[in-house]
Simulated assay, not measured.
Amino acid sequence: MTARLMEQACSWLADQREAMAECLKTLVEIDSHSHDKAGNDAVADVIAGWLEADGIELKRTSRPHAGDILEARLEGTQAGHVLLMGHRDTVFPTGTVARRGYTQRGDLAFGPGVADMKAGLVLNCFVLRALRRLPSLPYPVHALFTADEEIGSLDGRAFIEEAVQGARAVFNAEPGRVSGNVVTARKGGAGFLIEVEGRAAHSGVNHADGASAIEALARKIVKLHALTDHAAGVTTNVGVIEGGMSRNTVAPWARAQLDVRFVSASQRERLYADIEAIVAEQELPGTSGSLTRTSAFLPLEARMSEVLFGHYQGHAARLGFAVEGEFTGGCSDAGFTASLGVPTLCGVGPVGAKMHTDEEVCRLDTLVPRAQAVAATLLDLGDLTGEGAKSPVSA
């Protein structure tokens, strides 16, 4: 029965390349920067129209300050759904489409967000449409379309964690690597705002009465950067600093933005504690520091994708393409689901390259086979409950 369902789904998808490319063009031609609610909601409108036309059940949750949350559902005969994930937002500011919209050169498509991850949204939609045409599904399939992943999923995370409850597996349609591989492990990461207060004084008349927030911050930055351990996969990077009033004033304030990356939850806990201690330490009399976390992603540890990747790799081979698992230092929503103990595979979207740049590109020849691989795998998952089960991790 399962083999017949896989054959039917893959057969329908085999004829959809041009339709998928046309849908990709439609989505790319809509500006949807993370802070552009209207643009993100316009993308949701288009997706909803495609899925409703095939009779797929939708739930849309209005959000006041972010793009709406859109969820699609197909029913199945057993408990334990499969979750497809994708984010509608891009890093490109509103107005980018007017300057450089969708273009196509042979099997290559260009445009803002074409790979990250509007091609993945199209893939998820066509997988749902293929499954909708089957006589029945062995278990339910849900798809979640969020709108703020590029800025840390501050609004979307709660919906992701709710949607994954009871799931047997997750496929996150971030772009496939330029190598053609999928992502089996990702770093977690966080952003912090460090603020230091000092005491102003004239730098020539009464320098000794001042307490330089800039000097205190500089000392902290040296300590923060010393936490980097490349061999262990831990990095710390202060990428933005600002502060002070004028050249001839001892600086009464300074602040910095810190980015950190880590491979495991245990590394994260140690790193957070070290950062808190460094910021709290008084570097100079009359100065004080405070720390605010501005974003957080949890890691996708390799053990949470291993069994699921084995299923995917086998079906990809039967479909005619070879694929390996790959580690990346970038973060994604896959870490949230994996850290809740649910087998998760990321980077299953069409193959892309040069994401977040003006040269971002998607390989159109990978639209169909990557969609077929996801559809075949999710129809043939069996029991994955033993894979890497663990207690939830908070961020």
Rank of each mutant, 00 (worst) to 15 (best):
T96K: 09
L131Q: 08
R99S: 15
S32L: 10
A48I: 01
H87N: 13
T344D: 11
V240A: 06
Q282Y: 00
D155M: 12
T235L: 11
A226N: 06
A3D: 14
L308N: 03
A42N: 10
L74A: 12
E29A: 07
E326T: 05
S212M: 01
V170Y: 08
V28S: 07
A316G: 03
E360N: 10
P112F: 13
Q16Y: 01
D358C: 03
F110Y: 14
K390E: 10
S212R: 05
G239H: 02
V91Y: 04
G349L: 01
L367I: 01
D148C: 04
A273P: 05
S11K: 04
P285E: 10
G152N: 03
L74T: 02
A353E: 09
D54K: 08
G289W: 09
R133I: 00
K187Q: 11
K25Y: 02
I214Y: 03
N172V: 15
L134W: 03
L154S: 14
A163G: 07
T377I: 07
V342E: 03
A185E: 12
Q313M: 12
P175F: 07
R268Q: 12
A353T: 09
M117P: 04
S391C: 00
L70V: 12
A130L: 10
F327A: 15
V127K: 03
R129L: 14
E387W: 05
M117I: 02
Y102F: 15
D68V: 02
V393W: 08
K223S: 15
D383L: 04
R4G: 13
L5S: 06
S290F: 09
A21P: 03
R363S: 09
A169Q: 02
R168H: 10
P252K: 11
L298G: 13
A302S: 14
I151S: 08
G156I: 07
G320K: 08
A338R: 08
I275W: 06
T77P: 00
L378V: 13
T103C: 12
A53R: 13
L121W: 07
N124S: 09
A72N: 05
A251G: 00
S62F: 07
A14E: 12
D383Q: 07
Y139I: 00
L379H: 02
Q313D: 02
G329E: 05
L308K: 10
L291P: 00
